[in-house]
Design a protein around this nucleic acid. Structure first.
Lengths: 206, 206
DNA sequence: ACCTGAACACCGTTCAAGT
DNA sequence: ACCTGAACACCGTTCAAGT
């Protein structure tokens, strides 16, 4: 029913073409292996001329930057929900957050790669480091709480956060690339790596 | 003296054009932010027509695959040297290997990204997973030795290796992206993360 | 056996012109 | 204010023809 491609006509002026372009691009990102899709193809599927997108984005990089930013927003939402859902223990919350993070990447491989690509943060207002801060803030808050409760070692937050982020970032990308043989979260390698991470953070013996 | 671009002539037939193309492409990879360089530009700098490279590589993806493979070879060399140099203790060896790994990525950002890119492992004989095995074997051997010596926890090697690899892979990419504020290896966040990793592996308390 | 030149289909981007 | 059509410069790739 809801044909999203090639809307016949809405009085020549498309209305909210910007949104349609973003949604179409997101769909093509989800379908393909990367962001090699063509701006002309996006326009085609949106039912407009190939020059129309340029009225809403200065160039392709800007569209990609927009997709990247939206990706970071979704990731932050996923993380805060996963962490906030069941605050039984800090360990548990961190583990849930980590699993949600990896799953997000596995479910959106092309988007996740784009978010950390140099092609998506050219001269935009928001640099990559600023965008990534929001999700990072979630894990830092958790680490702080863990230290206050005495279950995490008292080390500089900077380093602990780096260890956590690097671990989930690495696990996510290796999973996407199919380099950790069982690809689903909850399977052996990912879980084992997360367990090792927690053991490295913990004060007591596991 | 050794002008590597635009050799005047070597009797029309270039001789070892294949090598020159690879070297030129590697230079452009090192100069730029990625592998968006153009095959025509490579040919231009190699002093041949834009069609000449197609006599040595079926397409651009094949050239990129070659660069990626050579990257994995260099990484394996760097790792084995770093690990084998001073085998005082397994901990020390693992730490040296990890530092060498991260430094390799920081020193060759575009190459390192290419190595784990989907664009560099299309339908080549060697899939990404097979290429990555050689460097991974180095760390697995180290973990095994650590377990035999009783300094590393007795967990399935699969999981421990995943934890190590994900940690250095993540640290490398975050460093490349400038997301761990001090960018040089040996600085706080990277060292802290590696310390946490080792604490997670160790049997005794640090 | 190895390289060149012209040619093809396709892109990103621009801009005067339409509604 | 928003979209179109033609145009420009450039790519990846192919292929008949040159050496």
């Amino acid at each position: 029913m809801s044909e999203s491609r090639a809307k016949p006509r809405e009085s020549y002026h498309h209305g909210d073409l910007r949104r349609v372009i973003i949604q179409t691009a997101e769909a093509m990102l989800a379908e393909g292996q990367g962001w090699q899709f063509t701006l002309r193809e996006v326009a085609r599927r949106a039912g407009v001329s190939h020059a129309a997108p340029y009225k809403h984005f200065p160039d392709k990089a800007s569209l990609l930057a927009e997709l990247s930013m939206r990706g970071f927003d979704r990731l932050r939402e996923v993380l805060t929900e996963a962490v906030g859902a069941n605050p039984r223990s800090v360990r548990e919350a961190l583990l849930r957050g980590a699993r949600a993070y990896v799953r997000f990447g596995i479910d959106n491989p092309a988007l996740y790669r784009l978010m950390f690509s140099t092609e998506a943060c050219q001269d935009e207002d928001l640099h990559l480091s600023e965008r990534a801060m929001a999700p990072l803030a979630v894990v830092i808050a958790l680490l702080q709480r863990g230290q206050q409760e005495g279950v995490f070692r008292l080390r500089p937050l900077e380093g602990l956060a780096a260890a956590c982020w690097a671990q989930v970032h690495g696990l996510t990308l290796l999973s996407i690339d199919g380099l950790l043989l069982p690809q689903k979260v909850g399977e052996a390698p990912v879980e084992a790596a997360l367990a090792a991470l927690l053991e490295g953070l913990a004060t007591g013996p596991a």
